[in-house]
Design a protein around this nucleic acid. Sequence first.
DNA 1: AATAACCATCGATCAAGGCGATAGTTCATG
DNA 2: CATGAACTATCGCCTTGATCGATGGTTATT
Lengths: 284, 284
Amino acid sequence: MASQEVLLAFVQAATQGSFSAAARKLGRSQSTISAAVASLEIDLDLQLFDRSSRKPTLTPAGHVMLQKAEAILAATSRLEMSARQLAQGVEPKLTVAISDTYQSYRFEAALVDFEQRYPELELECLIAECDDLIELVQRGRAHLAFAEMQDNYPPDLVTSTVAERTEIALFVSREHALAKLEHVDQQILEQHRELRLATIVNPYDSRGKGRVWSAPSYLMLLEMAEKGFGWAPLPRWLVQRYANDLLIELDVRGWPKPVFVDALWSRLYPPGPAGSWLLSKMLE
Amino acid sequence: MASQEVLLAFVQAATQGSFSAAARKLGRSQSTISAAVASLEIDLDLQLFDRSSRKPTLTPAGHVMLQKAEAILAATSRLEMSARQLAQGVEPKLTVAISDTYQSYRFEAALVDFEQRYPELELECLIAECDDLIELVQRGRAHLAFAEMQDNYPPDLVTSTVAERTEIALFVSREHALAKLEHVDQQILEQHRELRLATIVNPYDSRGKGRVWSAPSYLMLLEMAEKGFGWAPLPRWLVQRYANDLLIELDVRGWPKPVFVDALWSRLYPPGPAGSWLLSKMLE
DNA sequence: AATAACCATCGATCAAGGCGATAGTTCATG
DNA sequence: CATGAACTATCGCCTTGATCGATGGTTATT
């Protein structure tokens, strides 16, 4: 079985184009590299280098084996990176629960940085509704949660408000009747269909306030609004991103509403380094 | 550096849930597995197993490391598979050149089987025009070629006719004026724009036979025909696959034309096992 | 209480990777 | 053409680590 040392020697020799250079690079003696390559050639029953000229060059078969060898080394270095991080106490998997309400540039930007910093760490994103979010964190099922701000939290939770204010405004399709009006008051609004968020656990209780269509995610609401089915409260960033020219904001008293977001975590199951890092990115 | 033996012991122990069982499976002594796991834990500075119960179970960190270790072992087994095949003389890379004229179910089916049989082998498909195809094979740049049948070939080439007949028929868009006609004769045809294949090397020399639009691939011609720009000779299978309902076949004397396909290879650079295998699949 | 199965540890053995020294090749240069 | 510089192959020797068998401790079952 080809050992790591042998493969390293081979890869280095192949990329350097010289056994001696590879030896210098790896801090080994030249004979070690030579022996390593020779033993690899015997093990694989393949000629890897063409030694006829001054500088050994890879044979066609050697090129193929180089690719495979590099794949192995890359896999081992990933293992070692994971091991180092785990040894330092980084959590094996980070679970973040997000409210349907909360989707933001800040979070996405934080994830981009996160991917750079912890490329090997498994990430799990859960979507849940307010009370469920709290329970997920309390049970330790999620390390971190981002939820719409609330007045009271259980004592075992720690919270911190994210320095970001999403705005939720009312939108309709360009083609919709309401789109023509300069200003819209509550009564006129109630004459048209509302598109409203309803979580699965806690559905909207339709007290006949007018026709209401509901969906469990803002993206679905947005698509309904695009089709002109009614007006919908939507995060402004979502509209800018996915329906920039198709929807128009309504001017209604009390709208747009600011939404503040709290980060939650548990005192019992405090987030590890990766969770803390992500948290600090979100709070900075 | 974690050696292959140690990783194998770890993976086997983790999947078996028992060091002794892993030892039996690997044909090693129990102490070997125990020592291997212990040394891996020391090397990685991680607790991989929870030994408190009767059967050792993976820690969360152990689960992560198991994934990474399996990735390494998979990479090495791919290397070994490649090595075995190369040692048996399988070509490091298979290059197949195909005429623009020839695209078929048979070839695609052969490739599916090929992928099963030589999953690690690199495949290169070249598209070229008739004379270029022959030159590619003569030079050894391509191991195999599939080209429209021809009467004479250079003496250093071997040929065999593929038992498949592609039909090329004339098609126009449903919306095109010609689509209304039951039968079309040559004169009427010449009054409308022709969409014709022109290779890059050997462009269509437009002797004012009527307006002609040309493109270097049948797929592009097909799209032009869909748009209603004119009539085009197209392989029937291509139309069935990509424009089933949008194009209509014209009934013109002399059409559809059968196209026979020859497989070509060189006596000087005979195809290796993989090439021969693919060839036999194509000829069977 | 007895037994069976399991894991950890110890000392010995052996193969593989490592080094230094040496000899043989190849290429550029005067 | 002779020479020197840089490279690779090979030899003997040493160290490391993988492996084994034996032994003892622990856990669950009967």
